[in-house]
Amino acid sequence: MGRIEERFAHLLQQGEAALIPFITAGDPDLGTTVKILHELVEAGADLIELGIPFSDPMADGPTIQAASERALANGATLAGVLDCVRQLREHSNVPVVLMGYYNPVLHYGAAQFSHDAAAAGVDGLLLVDLPPEEAGEIQEDLRRSGIALITLLAPTTPRERATKLAAVGEGYLYYVSMTGVTGAKQVDAAGIVDEVEALRPLAAVPVAVGFGITTPADAAAVADFADGVVVGSALVKIIAEYADSPELLDQVGGFIRKLKEATRRSSQ
């Protein structure tokens, strides 16, 4: 059993939803990213989505765009991102999913990437601009290395397509809560309950929800019906605000603890 599967199975037993924080690797720099990763684990993150910075993050709002720019300006590379995971892996078993855009991975080489990522301790890969129709060219390499390719589903995905994609999902399904970019508006939890609940029995894997989840109250509301709750922009904002402050890790840890409390308290 892989780390992702194990973690969700354990949480299901506990009656909790997974808290899945997202941060952009290399923001503000790769050294700090490793410290933040440790802090996330310490504070209760169940799984981590680690963003690979990209020059043209077309699906991201201003917060994560800016984080990507800071990371690239400070010299973050895909090899450096893998090294962060390697350092985290020395101390933690938390599942790590790399999230980003296809081009850096394509340029690194699918086979080489799969090999190096698995060796570093990466469990999954989520590429925003690689829909299942195009994923064939990388999927075999990932499978051979035991890395799950996470599938996204959106509110615009027709039921028939969702049914097909859900049945073959790996790791977990990432349900995008709204039409829009990351961090644009607040999630309407009540508006997506039906969609997510319809999806869960169709899915071969757990269903996590992301986009627009900014507060513990949002997290609690979503944790009522989803297997996992992704918090990205709200956390990246805190990192941006405290990047140069000695309070950075405390602020990050404090926020994560509140979110984790929310996913614990409200679960079925």
Binding site: Y102, L130, P131, L153, P155, T156, T157, P158, R161
Partner: peptide
């Protein structure tokens, strides 16, 4: 599938696929 040999395709977010 929209490929021009090894090029082209449809590399977009799921929200846009439909």
């Amino acid at each position: 599938k929209g490929h021009f040999g090894a090029f082209g395709g449809r590399y977009v977010a799921e929200t846009l696929m439909p």
